[in-house]
Design a protein around this nucleic acid. Sequence first.
DNA 1: TATTATTGTGGGTAGATGTGGGGAGAAATC
DNA 2: GATTTCTCCCCACATCTACCCACAATAATA
Lengths: 150, 150
Amino acid sequence: MITSFAGESKHFLDEKSRLSIPAKYRRWLTEEDAEYTFVVTKGADPCLIAYPAVEWDTFAEKLRNLSQFKKKNRAFIRTWSRNSIRLKCDKQGRILMPQRLLDFANIKKEVVIIGALNYLELWEQEMLKEHQESQIPLDDDYFEDLADIF
Amino acid sequence: MITSFAGESKHFLDEKSRLSIPAKYRRWLTEEDAEYTFVVTKGADPCLIAYPAVEWDTFAEKLRNLSQFKKKNRAFIRTWSRNSIRLKCDKQGRILMPQRLLDFANIKKEVVIIGALNYLELWEQEMLKEHQESQIPLDDDYFEDLADIF
DNA sequence: TATTATTGTGGGTAGATGTGGGGAGAAATC
DNA sequence: GATTTCTCCCCACATCTACCCACAATAATA
């Protein structure tokens, strides 16, 4: 069983657009992926998602089962793939963030890194705040549904 | 089966924000988790909750199965995990408390540690007192409902 | 009560971690 | 092929973490 990511911390992009991945998350990678590689992609919410490469590969494997004969499937796979990029940490544990992705999440210098189970979310602080505030609170129905699972 | 936590005791944060976990609770950890690791998170009440890491991991493992294509699932996972942090006891049995969490529970120096079944509650003394006083007393209806379970 | 063992608290310090920047080599462009 | 841009190594260093040791406080035992 892989230990789940948890926690939140604030980091800074340096002049070269490098982002330091907290050591605790890097360490959890080593068990399954000695390469310290993440796949960073645009999130469904206005943030970036960094999957450990093995997690992303698992997901990609599932996507293969989508039929190529459906136009929407092709569109989804295309969008998903082109927005994903495989990034390896340098010897100091940093990844070099492409400008295109930074722009998407509106990230300038400050980055809030949230450990969310089997992936990391990268947020610009203000975007996160706005997103959380505009979020419709989870209602009783949601938790009723959850209760069916747990 | 893990022995349940029980009891209450008062401890102090030191200058380095370290909190000594009572030996009796630490001991109960060893059975299942030789790492002496807790996951500390914000409570529903204005206190902090410390789960033995194995307890938290079991729940986290279930959460992983929630589909990320549902916005509410993402929101729930985000809120759940950003407030949680994995903390390992040092060789003297202390954990280093992040300021962010201390602020949430209004903890300065004194901490009341309450052992509650499979988790610990960490309270600032005055907050606990206020909370208990403002608490609506448990009524007969509540116990009637409980009777359905026991 | 006296003695011993365990636990809780304080603080110094080596090593780990995060951040910045120079520069060699690779890759892209002209 | 020459020039520019980019990537990633290296080193530097400030900060943080978690070890170690010391010893006080408490509990357990004779």
